[in-house]
Amino acid sequence: MDIVKFKNYSWKYSETDKYVLKNINLTIQQGEFLGIIGNVGSGRSTLCMSLLGLVPHLFYGKTKGELIVDDIVVKKAKISDLSSRVGLVLQSPDTQLTGAGTNVEEELAFGLENLGVPRREIIKKVDSMLKLLNLEQLRNRSPFELSGGQQQKVAIASVFIMEPKILVLDEPTAQLDPLGTEQVFSFIKKLAKKGTTIILNTQKIDYIAEFADRIAVVNKGRVVKVGETREILTNVELLRRNGISPTVFTKLSEELIKNRLYKGELAMTFGDAVKIMKKVKRK
């Protein structure tokens, strides 16, 4: 089932001259993990924000075409109608915490309180979420005292606990150190197994290579290409044309092919690279 449908969708902020999103056609299946990659300023974040209706309801501007999220026409809906279906997390861990909770537990409970979930159910859900994500030892700490990686985990968890049909992550690791990034991605991997539709906008393609089902390449406000992860990420020419650097593993296999040490498909993940190295060694 299609859960998100962009039909010839364009968007322009009132303060910009050019359209930030141009004629986008994209359908996203329920339960799918879609990675969005592209250059800086390509309109990826705006794309993410339009899914929750922030564009056009919080920011002013002009839309063309149509966007349907879970059978709701975004243009006609209110943000509050969409917010029970779509969860959005932005990049800065500090501002993604609402400050409504005095500790991690309450921060997690906040979204459920807003949806009017009975207290007993909230307690159950908070407990199981803390257990699932190994955050139990942090439950009574103030979210603002945690490290960036932990904060972002709490922020994502507190959106995920509301059981949105679609979870939109807009560069959730852009401000984190390598360890924090690793933590957040392994956490997202766990969530992906629960069957939620996840849309992940990121620059860290080494990570999405591991677990995205499909990838959309965005450049200058257009969706240049959508396809299977392997098809896109091993299409080196497509990536470079759109200002994206392939994964280190792809570059490694490219180099080996150039030096005639290896013949065959390009690598994409760590696993691929290991296989290739074994082949090279055997030769």
């Binding site: 997390v89 932005l90 501002t95 993604q96 309450e106 979204g111 922020a155």
Partner: peptide
């Protein structure tokens, strides 16, 4: 920060119209 926190609040259904409940 206010703009970003507004977005965080909206994605926590802050403006969702219903009888709110309390964890505490």
């Amino acid at each position: 920060n206010v703009v970003e926190r507004t977005i965080a609040l909206e994605s926590r259904a802050f403006s969702y119209e219903t009888e709110k409940t309390s964890y505490r």
